[in-house]
Nucleic acid binder design. Structure first.
Length: 112
DNA sequence: GCAGTGACGGATA
DNA sequence: GTATCCGCCACTG
């Protein structure tokens, strides 16, 4: 099948590469795709990721580690619950020590 | 077909 | 340092 949006496919690919206990930001993925300004589209892509359980959308948060999309999950507490299960600390819908768990695809994947 | 909106982010005032 | 605007691409109304 022809992918209507290659952008989404890339987002999914990166999201699935996020290691356990790590998190990244929409902008980081967008940047990896070469369109750092399209961070919104990354979030939109994650919205489509609902039908793709292999995509850890809960590991994708905004730039400050805020669970901005938790409301979009099956349950608003599912996102933080999953993150907590990965050893992360969530306080007021925000990842504590987010920077330490931050996973940048442009660095970890060694952009070639 | 046009306009508005969206799980964001950076820039400008 | 805080507040507001614009831009990005895709989807819905």
């Amino acid at each position: 099948m022809q992918e209507k949006s290659n952008f989404f496919e890339k987002v999914y690919a990166v999201a699935k590469l996020i290691p356990f206990g790590r998190v990244t930001s929409y902008g980081a993925i967008a940047k990896y795709l070469g369109t750092p300004k399209s961070a919104r589209m990354v979030g939109w892509a994650m919205n489509s990721a609902h039908g793709k359980p292999e995509i850890p959308a809960h590991r994708v948060v905004n730039r400050i580690g805020l669970l901005s999309g938790k409301n979009n999950f099956a349950s608003p507490t599912l996102m933080e619950d999953l993150l907590k299960s990965e050893g992360l600390t969530i306080l007021e819908d925000q990842i504590q020590n987010f920077k330490s768990h931050y996973w940048d695809p442009t660095e970890e994947l060694h952009l070639d």
